[in-house]
Structure formats: structure tokens, C-alpha cells
Amino acid sequence: MRIVDVNEFYSPTGGGVRTYLERKMGLLAEMGHELIVLAPGPEDRIEERPGGGRIEYLRSPRLPFDRNYGLFWDEAAMTAALDRLHPDLVECSSPWRPAWFVANWKGNAPRVFFMHNDNMAAYAQRWFENVASGERVERAFAWYTRYMGRFLERYDAVVTNGPALEKRLRARGLRIDAAMPLGIERGHFSPAMRDDDLRRAMLAQLGLGPDGLLLLGMGRHHPEKRWPLVIDAAERAGATMPVGLMLLGHGGLSPKLERRVAGSPHIRLFRPVYDRERLARIMASCDALIHGAEGEPFGLVASEAMASGLPLIAPASGGCAEVADRHASELYEPRDAAAAAAAIGRLFARDRAMLRRAAVTAAGRVRSDREHAAELMRYYEGLVAAKAEAGRAAVRK
């Protein structure tokens, strides 16, 4: 089966979506399928992947506030690419122009809208959280939900990347046909990667000794990730206990965050780590992952941390809360730095050996990306078969 994923969220310097798609290409190739990602780029270009699949960039304008990403704008170019590739199934995940480009395409392949994110939570609710309740914001932006409903009705299936997003969208009255929880590359992440010497070295970089609590924050430096809240929580907790925070990431907020932590003795920002083995060693050698985004649709980073044997400190709603193991996590009231600091304190007060055992046990239950890919392909094969049968039935009539 050839799948074409029309994906505005893919960037060679991106985070979770890039990781997911790069791995998915190889997995589908092993299963005998082909995944081609159509992504916006500064020029028309094709990148073949050694394990199978490829990225085809269509020349598109860049986002003015983040030059790493682009916007599909040319419907004719998109239509021509789909006609040329002749897919068995088309995925789309952007609710803007690409949603309509794919819906308008005249090909016979099933169309699937794959929900990777929630713009209502990531933007509208965050923008107005200090002036209105979440419910009022939902009502004020009901036009956006209605807009989504209009293009979703033209798709053969609507799929989310996990239960958190499914619940949120169903509550707004949107049609969801299936939830396909993502998985992570279990071969890289493992508690066995823990390196006590590396842990001591990282704590020393933060000005702390081996008795310190080494927290890791990972993700793009974007407002929806709420890194200022995480920094505030670490500083509050650090006033009464030895807490260090490493933030791995980059983005538009990086200069502001660098200024914010300039006077913090135990908090440092680091560039993203793209080498998977090195990243796995870093993750397994920390003491906990801390996350601030309650609007996270699926806790991919949280799952990687759990597979590494790391406890979680996360908001009590959203994708990270959905995957968190209750024996190896401390959840807190979303958008509340004091509550996050209290969660850090609760984790610090727990018996380290017992917490470690609970986290290692939880690591064995983390869903793999192979499981996700196999389940998704079974679902897609059913859609293709149903579409073909409907076509044959129409001809017989």
C-alpha cells in the first residue's frame, strides 16, 4: 500500500512529528508498505530514506514567526503531486488550506484526517486563559469547531493520536472514527541506558552534588509548552531542596528563556540532542521528566521518558497524564506553578529506590511504535477494502 501524508507539521529540524514520521517510514517499509510525506519546503526537492519511503518538499512560503516550518499554498501543485503519486490512501493533518486541497482532490483513494494536535487548546485557550474560563473560550471559538466539521465530513475517516485528543474533540461534537495511540521506539529507550557517572556530571553542570534531584524538560521553545511555568516551579522547589533543571530544546522563545534563567544557579538551557543513543543515555540518567503543557495531545516525550525508567511530573490533564503510570508519576493542577513545585517536592520526598523500581516496571508497559504502526495499517487496509467494495457496488448498479 502506498500512503501519502500531506503534512504541514513536518520539518527536518522539527520535534515529535518529525520523529514520528521518520520512524513510521521505516516501519511501514518493513511491513511492505510505502509512506511518502508531502511537506512544505523552500524549494521542490525529494529526499529518499535508506530504510524506505521519502520526503517530497513542495515549494511553499515560510511561517513568518518560525522559519523552520512552511504553509502549503498552491492547490494546483498539491493536486498534481497527488495525481502523480497515485496513492492508495491519503492522510492529512493540517486544518487549514491542505484540509481542503485533499478534500477537493478527484482521486479515488480514501482520505483520512489524522489529528496530531488541538489548536483550540494550544492557542485560543492559552491566549485568553487570564480573561475567561476554558468553557467561555470554547463557546467563543465554536466557529472553529464548526469550520472543522465542514471539511471533516468530506473525509472517509477521522483519526486521533490518542485518547486525550479523542475525548477533547468528541466533547465539542466533532466526529472521531478511531483513536490510534502513538508509540515510541523501544529499541532506543531503556532503563539499562542509565549512567550514574553521566548523572553526576550533569548535576555538576547545574552546580549540584549527587544528592540533587535532576529534572529534565524536553521540547520546542514554544508558548504552548509552558516552559516559564516549569522554570518557576523548579525555582520554587529549589528554594528548599537541591533541584536542578536541564531544558533541551530550541525555538522562538529561546532568547526569552535564556534571559529568564540567566540568574538561576541550577537551571540551564541546552540545544536539542538529535543523536538517539546519546539522548537515550541522557534521559535514562536523569531523575524525572517534568512537563508543563496540559494541551499536549499525546505524551510522546513522556512515553520516551517512561521507557527510559524516568518518573513523570506533569499536568493532570492532556496527553502526558493519559500515559503516566500512577506509581511513578506526580501530577499537578494545570497552569499552576505552585502546584507543579509541590509535585516536585512530593517526588523528592519519595523513597528513591522504591520510585526507581516503580519506574522501571512502568517502562516495560510503554506502547511501541511497531504496535501503533501495525494497528494503524490494519485500520487503513479496512478503509481501502471498503472503498474498493463501494466502487464495485456502484459499477454493478
Results as ranks from 00 to 15, higher is better:
155 Y>E: 06
157 A>Q: 11
157 A>N: 09
158 V>F: 08
158 V>S: 09
159 V>T: 04
161 N>D: 09
162 G>W: 04
164 A>I: 01
164 A>C: 11
166 E>A: 10
167 K>F: 02
167 K>R: 15
173 G>F: 10
173 G>W: 09
174 L>S: 04
174 L>N: 05
174 L>W: 06
177 D>F: 08
177 D>S: 13
177 D>W: 12
177 D>I: 11
179 A>K: 06
179 A>S: 15
182 L>W: 03
184 I>N: 10
184 I>H: 06
184 I>Y: 06
185 E>M: 04
186 R>H: 05
186 R>S: 11
186 R>N: 10
186 R>F: 01
187 G>H: 09
187 G>S: 12
188 H>E: 11
189 F>T: 01
189 F>P: 11
189 F>N: 07
189 F>R: 07
189 F>M: 09
190 S>E: 11
191 P>A: 06
191 P>I: 05
191 P>H: 07
192 A>V: 08
192 A>M: 09
193 M>Q: 15
195 D>H: 09
195 D>F: 07
195 D>T: 08
195 D>M: 08
195 D>C: 05
196 D>K: 00
196 D>I: 00
196 D>F: 01
197 D>Q: 11
198 L>G: 13
198 L>A: 14
199 R>F: 01
199 R>P: 12
200 R>Y: 00
200 R>P: 03
200 R>S: 12
201 A>S: 15
201 A>R: 14
202 M>N: 01
204 A>M: 00
204 A>P: 00
204 A>K: 03
205 Q>M: 12
205 Q>C: 07
206 L>T: 02
207 G>D: 13
209 G>H: 08
211 D>Y: 02
211 D>C: 03
211 D>F: 02
212 G>W: 02
213 L>F: 03
214 L>A: 12
214 L>D: 08
216 L>M: 14
218 M>V: 15
219 G>R: 05
219 G>W: 03
220 R>K: 14
223 P>N: 01
223 P>D: 07
223 P>K: 01
223 P>A: 05
224 E>H: 12
225 K>F: 09
225 K>P: 14
228 P>R: 04
228 P>A: 02
229 L>C: 08
229 L>M: 13
230 V>T: 14
233 A>T: 09
233 A>K: 07
235 E>S: 08
235 E>N: 08
235 E>T: 05
235 E>V: 01
237 A>M: 01
237 A>I: 01
238 G>C: 05
238 G>K: 04
